[in-house]
Design a protein around this nucleic acid. Structure first.
Lengths: 196, 196
DNA sequence: TGCAAAGCGGAACGCTGTTCCGTATTGTTA
DNA sequence: TAACAATACGGAACAGCGTTCCGCTTTGCA
């Protein structure tokens, strides 16, 4: 095993305030740039978006792959935490589901880029995919259950299959600019509605 | 359509002798380097192997992808032409099949690298894959038929499935140096033998 | 045999990811 | 509060890649 701490970033609990803040800023800037320009975006672009020097980025994430992995985990966590929040905030569970799926779609861009970031590391990819499932399937299931309990949606689709379908709809979204994955996903969610 | 002449090389029928010779030299050198170092090998290495300058390589193949494609087609052609020759030369059809498959395995390295060379061009990839099937399936079928007629091998495997199986055995051969695809493929061919 | 046209070699360019180091910021200690 | 290590920062510099450019050589034809 040579990938100790892979994907965790080196200094998640640093003593210095600016270091902690920069790490957070970088994760968010990278996520933004990945969605806007794809996961192949140059490291310099991410540093610029974050308003930070190259040294800073490499201090926090020793390698480009480390950054992609850290963004991925960060997005998984953010997406998982967003579920209950949206559910509490939204007018209805179905609306909350719709907005949660928007987060999910943005984040899939990063996930699809993982494959190229971890070209030879199938084991690492499997680990991260497992983390993805462990954290997000329950959240999605919770949203589905709430919408079901409210009588808003049909009940013949479980969280795993829904997420799988959304994931498939997003394949190729980064290469073909005419392909609007979000619209198709929105249709899919609309189609979940219980016919009344 | 923006890929006019993609994969054909620019000057296959040049007026000048040295140009034609260099083109051939380059195709062979590239094939050698791809087998030795993988398809990600730097263009400079191929120029060095061919004993040629950078300008020459880019005169013949305007882009790295063009070179990979040209090598691919060249290998498909060479492999297709080798079939009948080996069949005529070898002691038995089964031996000829074994040696043909050796060619085929070397050439698969290039084929697997095509995917990364043509990252976004799925249409181009499909075209080249169709060319691959059109030219090689009949040759493989001819070798199988000859071996069958000679009573050397079992008859329950057609050319397409055999080639598919060999292709699958070679997946990952370029990343894991401990994985010896050729040995496994040899076992597969040995297994074709008719139990006597 | 001369000479334009075609082709060649390899230095130079622009773009990557990554490293390095002088400078600025921070938390701690007197 | 003032001084001072320790820590982190910025961005220039480096190495390796694909690609371009241009002075020189080779070729085939008149």
């Amino acid at each position: 095993m040579d990938d100790s701490g892979r994907g965790a970033g080196s200094d998640a609990g640093s003593r210095r305030k600016d270091a902690r803040r920069n790490r957070q800023t970088l994760l968010e800037a990278a996520a933004t740039v990945f969605v806007a320009s794809g996961v192949e975006a140059p490291v310099r672009d991410i540093a610029a978006e974050a308003g930070v020097g190259m040294g800073t980025i490499y201090r926090h994430f020793p390698t480009r792959a480390d950054l992609v992995i850290a963004v991925y985990r960060h997005q998984v966590d953010a997406c998982a935490e967003a579920g209950p929040v949206l559910l509490a905030a939204g007018p209805t569970p179905h609306a909350a589901l719709g907005r949660w799926v928007d987060h999910f779609v943005d984040f899939l861009v990063t996930k699809h880029g993982l494959a190229s970031a971890l070209q030879n590391d199938n084991a690492g990819f499997e680990t991260l995919h497992a983390y993805f499932l462990d954290r997000l399937v329950p959240v999605c299931a919770q949203l589905l259950a709430a919408a079901t309990a409210a009588g808003e949606i049909r009940t013949d689709l479980d969280a795993l299959h829904l997420m799988h379908g959304i994931g498939n709809l997003c394949i190729g979204a980064d290469t073909d600019p005419h392909y609007d994955a979000r619209r198709l996903v929105a249709l899919l969610i609309a189609g979940l509605r219980q016919p009344c």
